[in-house]
Structure formats: structure tokens, C-alpha cells
């Protein structure tokens, strides 16, 4: 079963991978993490990437976000081809065009919430768009806690700061790596609604790696990976349809 170019829809692509291969090691220890993956993440869409452990979903995200190099193939953010870019150019691309949300929040403990949010712009030496910033802060519900340091915030609040940080610079695309992995279900639900709202109301593009069917159900589309290949996709998923699809992987895994 394979889903090649059919996954590519019309409309402007925020990020696109074509024939992506990622191989680790050589000889005996050779592992194919990504096997000829082509996928498009259109603008204004919330996509979830799912798959069992070791399916290559994180690797795909890292390669497309310019955090990891690819063995062959092509991957673009907007019009920019990532393959062949130097470290400095990649860094600038991430800084100016990509937002990141990590599982472990990854805030700087020495900075206040607000300083953490504006960090990417501070690094770039840009001034934040105040109106946008206010809107983002308001949406994530942090208005009263901007002066707090991460250690004074709960896990959910910290992750909301991380979301605001990803959004503040109006990136072309936001990559979220298991953003609810370290959160309780209520905080997790808040973050997921917030991500969905940022797509629906603020017109952002979000790509989220997760193994949680409930989290995936917040997305517009779910892309399934197995053994380094895209094996399926679901539009307008619900937790049940995702879970159902996942069970089939398991079943196939057991029978094969």
C-alpha cells in the first residue's frame, strides 16, 4: 500500500518534501529512516504525523524543519530548497520562517515568559509586531503571567509560552514535536485547541508529530508513516477513526 503524489493537494504549499531518503549507518548497521517520502503541507492546514515508534515520523519532521540533513531528495519551506543550504542559512531560515514547539517545553529558565516569547525576534534583532504579539498572548491566555519565569509556571502554562514563542514571529510553518507528551490531558487539550485555533483563526500552518489518536483528532489531516514510508492519510479525523487506523497497523504488524 502506498500513497505517493495523491497526498499533494492543490493550493500553496508551506512545506514540501519530494523523494526524501534518510539513511543512518552503513553496511550491517544500515537503517533506512525515510524511504522515498513525498509529502506536502499546505498553507493554513493543521497536519498530524502519526505512526508507530521507529516509523520515521520525528525524522521526517526534523529533516523538513532543517534540523537534520537528508541523504537524498528535496525538501522546501515556501520557495526555499533546504538541501544544500549551509548551517548559517539554515539557522536563519529556522529563525525567520519556522516555529518550534518541543515536548519538553524548552524554555530558558533565566528569561521571563515574555522574553522567552520574543526570543527568536530578539535573536534576529527584529522588533515584534506589537498588535500581533498582544493577540497571540491573549489567545494563549498568558496576559497576567508575562513577567513570570518558567519555574513559576505550570507545565501547561510553560507549553503555552512555547506555543506563543513559535507563533510570535508569524512563521511560515510551525513544527510541534509531541507537544502534549509531557502534559496532563486537560492541559494537553488546551494546547491542542489553541493550535487548532491558530490555524483556523490566525491562518497559521501547523505540523504536529504525535502518537496520541486524541491529539491527532484535532488536526485537519493525519498522515500515517510506517517503516519510513507514508502509508495512509485521513481527512477530518476523529479519535476513533485514527485509533481504528492505528489498530490496523498493529494487526498487520502482528500477522506479517
Amino acid at each position: 500500500m502506498s500513497f505517493p503524489a495523491t497526498a499533494v493537494r492543490t493550493g500553496l504549499a508551506a512545506a514540501r518534501a519530494t523523494g526524501l531518503n534518510k539513511v543512518y549507518g552503513e553496511g550491517e548497521t544500515r537503517v533506512v529512516a525515510l524511504d522515498n517520502v513525498s509529502v506536502t503541507f499546505p498553507q493554513g492546514e493543521f497536519t498530524a504525523i502519526m505512526g508507530p515508534s521507529g516509523s520515521g515520523k520525528s525524522t521526517l519532521m526534523h529533516c523538513m524543519a532543517g534540523l537534520d540533513t537528508v541523504s537524498s531528495g528535496s525538501t522546501t519551506i515556501g520557495d526555499t530548497e533546504l538541501v544544500g543550504l549551509k548551517d548559517k542559512q539554515l539557522t536563519q531560515l529556522r529563525r525567520d520562517h519556522i516555529g518550534f514547539i518541543f515536548q519538553a517545553f524548552n524554555l530558558l529558565p533565566t528569561l521571563t515568559a515574555l522574553e522567552n516569547i520574543t526570543l527568536p525576534m530578539d535573536i534576529a534583532g527584529r522588533k515584534a509586531d506589537q498588535a500581533w504579539l498582544d493577540r497571540v498572548v491573549d489567545t494563549v491566555g498568558l496576559s497576567g503571567r508575562l513577567g513570570h519565569r518558567p519555574s513559576q509556571l505550570s507545565g501547561g502554562q510553560q507549553q503555552r509560552v512555547a506555543c506563543a514563542r513559535a507563533l510570535a514571529g508569524k512563521p511560515d510553518i510551525i513544527f510541534a514535536d509531541e507537544p502534549t507528551g509531557n502534559l496532563d490531558s486537560r492541559s494537553g487539550a488546551e494546547i491542542l485547541s489553541f493550535l487548532r485555533n491558530s490555524v483556523r483563526e490566525l491562518g497559521q500552518t501547523v505540523v504536529m508529530v504525535t502518537h496520541d489518536p486524541v491529539a491527532a483528532s484535532y488536526a485537519d489531516r493525519v498522515v500515517f508513516l510506517a517503516d519510513g514510508r507514508i502509508v495512509d492519510e485521513l481527512h477530518a479525523p476523529t479519535a476513533d477513526t485514527v485509533l481504528d487506523r492505528m489498530r490496523r497497523f498493529d494487526a498487520k504488524g502482528r500477522t506479517s
Partner: peptide, 16 residues
């Protein structure tokens, strides 16, 4: 090192 990794990811270059 995790902070440094995050800073690199969100766009601080090596020189920074």
C-alpha cells in the same frame, strides 16, 4: 546543552 539545542533550533547561529 538542551537549552543550547533549543536556541540553535529557534535560530541562534553558532557564532551566537
Amino acid at each position: 546543552r538542551r537549552e543550547i539545542g533549543m536556541l540553535r533550533a529557534i535560530g541562534l547561529d553558532r557564532l551566537g
